[in-house]
């Protein structure tokens, strides 16, 4: 099943519109295994929408979006795409971890309960085993001592690290990050980026929508610049960030760097 030669994410002419507004106007890209793939661009460029399409939080209207060799949210049969049943979509989402801009931790559960909820209820792992693994993950993000705390009593950076541990608890093969540091106070950004950097070093495939150009340059293997629903420019982060080819990229980077 895990063929090392096929890419983790493969998008071909992916289109999406909300009402009459076309947000994705044919996105084509490929994310290799173990790659850190950064997406940058102004707000409204469609980068978050594209990320949400990868785990079918948004439905693709046209084009093919393939994760690990399988279509996302659809089944192809006789030249048509049939939308998958909820159960099948959920089963695919289990293998794709997602980290949100606003953390979205479950506020009525303790840190530990947040991390073991899906392994127990969705993957059917025994509570003792799930707890053991959760504690290991919390140690990895440096928050093992906070396991009994509730999310609202943690700083933004700590909440986001718990959110990463929660996503990792399902042992995903791909991690999606939707502007993971945008809601954080500047001095808390570093601790979250450190966790992400470690994750990248361990070989996790990551798609990261971010405004942290330093992180993209240092950790990223590929970078695309999106604007108005299209990929304007792509390449190695260092190349795109230091020597952008397109006017639009240049003007965007001159504002954020």
């Amino acid at each position: 099943m895990t063929d090392a030669t096929i890419p983790m994410v493969k998008a071909e002419e992916v289109r999406k519109h909300f009402g009459r507004l076309e947000v994705l106007k044919g996105i084509t890209l490929e994310v290799g295994r173990g790659e850190v793939f950064c997406i940058v661009g102004p707000s409204g460029s469609g980068k978050s929408t594209f990320l949400r399409c990868i785990n079918h939080l948004e439905k693709v209207d046209a084009g093919r979006l393939v994760v690990d060799g399988e279509l996302v949210g659809y089944r192809e049969d006789g030249g048509k795409l049939y939308e998958l049943k909820e159960r099948e979509v959920a089963a695919k989402r289990e293998q794709i971890g997602m980290v949100f801009q606003r953390f979205n931790l479950f506020p009525h559960m303790s840190v530990l309960e947040n991390v073991i909820e899906a392994p127990i209820r969705v993957a059917g792992i025994a509570k003792a085993a799930a707890t053991e693994r959760a504690v290991q993950l919390l140690e990895r993000v440096g928050l093992a001592d906070k396991r009994a705390a509730y999310p609202n009593h943690l700083s933004g950076g700590q909440q986001q690290r718990v959110a990463i541990a929660r996503a990792l608890a399902m042992a995903p093969k791909l991690m999606l990050f939707d502007e993971p540091t945008s809601a954080l106070d500047p001095e808390l950004v570093g601790e979250v980026l450190d966790v992400m950097r470690n994750l990248a070093d361990e070989g996790m495939t990551m798609v990261v929508v971010t405004h942290e150009m330093g992180f993209a340059r240092e950790v990223g293997d590929q970078l695309v610049f999106m604007d108005a629903g299209v990929v304007v420019e792509s390449g190695r982060p260092r190349d795109v960030l230091t020597a952008p080819q397109h006017e639009r990229t240049k003007s965007f980077l001159s504002k954020v760097l």
Binding site: N55, L57, E86, R87, A90, A91, R93, E94, I96, G97, M98, F100, N104, L105, F106, E117, A118, R121, V122, A123, A163, R166, A167, M170
Partner: peptide, 10 residues
């Protein structure tokens, strides 16, 4: 969304 992203059904 967070629950669904973890594979939880409706």
């Amino acid at each position: 969304e967070a629950a669904q992203a973890l594979g939880m059904r409706r």
